Amino acid sequence: MSKHTADFVTQGKRVLDIERAAIDDLYDSVNEHFSEACEIMLTCKGRVIVTGMGKSGHIGNKIAATLASTGTPAFFVHPGEASHGDLGMITSQDVVLAMSNSGETQEVLSIIPVIKRLGVPLISLTGNQNSTLARLADVHIIVAVSEEACPLGLAPTASTTASLVMGDALAVALLNARGFTADDFALSHPGGSLGRRLLLRVSDLMHQGERLPKVRQDDIISDALLEMSRKGLGMTAIVDDQDLLLGIFTDGDLRRILDQQIDIHHTPISSVMTARCTTVRPETLAAEALKIMEDKKINGLLVVNQQQTPVGAFNMHDLLRAGVI
């Protein structure tokens, strides 16, 4: 290890120590002011407008996105642009969350009079409780840090981390208060992999109709093997004359009967099938079906309707192709 490498490691760990301490110091800021801010945002009939300049603006952008994706309508307004027309996006039904480490950022302070004239509640996050922004706010949450991780004390580092964490605390507290669910989250993230995991149903990926492997209870084992080969799912459903599910036969079952030297050309499939097999309904979430398969250590599942008639089948490969795994 070179001297420079050792210095890199030392400095990196120093930064983590400083920023960890900054987060620890936030505990006292989660108090009655924090609760009041949450109550204002929870009862807001419009949207939460987040604003901030420079690095605070970057953090504000992320906080607005987190609020919006967890059930609190929100968006970011740049304070510089707000003075040149974007203030028109703020209505009397909204709440403004203004961020400034110093609490004296001119671009932010310049839009406060308009916010006040609109009667819009103002929540501020600053590192200085005696600052102008803190004093003008209806509710102020202190996010002060004892030192920045930057050794020059110039680049916002620990202070932006503290603001980001406080924003997450607000968003999650509101999420819980709203009873926001995984389904709600998925509806706002339909294009991402998480959305696919949360929204996808078994009916969206199962093989059905002519693609569903299925044989009758009195068919012989070799017929069942041909059906499994044609459909390529490594299993087949076994049904009675009313098309009700009696059991399943899988590749694993085949290996077991071969060890027993059973005559596959004369033995009915019903004598070697697995009865009372695990099934799911078409409306089952794909992620839930995956959990069932993992818990039971099986590679495929049959899908049945309310009458216990097989309507579909799928395996791990289908879940993989759908992005559930």
Rank of each mutant, 00 (worst) to 15 (best):
D243P: 00
C150Y: 04
L87W: 03
N61P: 02
L16M: 13
G119P: 09
F249I: 09
A65Q: 08
G12Q: 13
L125P: 11
D241S: 13
G179E: 00
V145G: 02
I264H: 09
V311Q: 11
A65R: 10
A162P: 12
I269Y: 05
A6G: 03
R197Y: 01
A74F: 05
V145A: 06
L164A: 15
L133A: 06
L258H: 12
L175K: 12
L125T: 13
L233Q: 04
L194S: 09
A313H: 07
R135L: 14
T66G: 11
L164I: 06
G52V: 04
V202Q: 06
S271F: 10
S146P: 00
V48I: 13
Q261C: 03
R321N: 14
M41V: 01
I18A: 04
D251K: 10
D25H: 08
I115L: 13
A149P: 03
G85E: 04
V165A: 15
E283W: 07
T132V: 03
M53I: 15
S163E: 10
A182R: 13
Q307S: 14
P190R: 11
K291A: 13
I325M: 15
M1Q: 12
T278D: 05
N101P: 00
V139Q: 02
P268M: 11
I269N: 12
S131V: 00
M235L: 14
F314Y: 01
M235G: 00
K214D: 02
S203W: 10
V145D: 05
D259P: 02
D263R: 04
V304Y: 02
L200Y: 12
R47F: 06
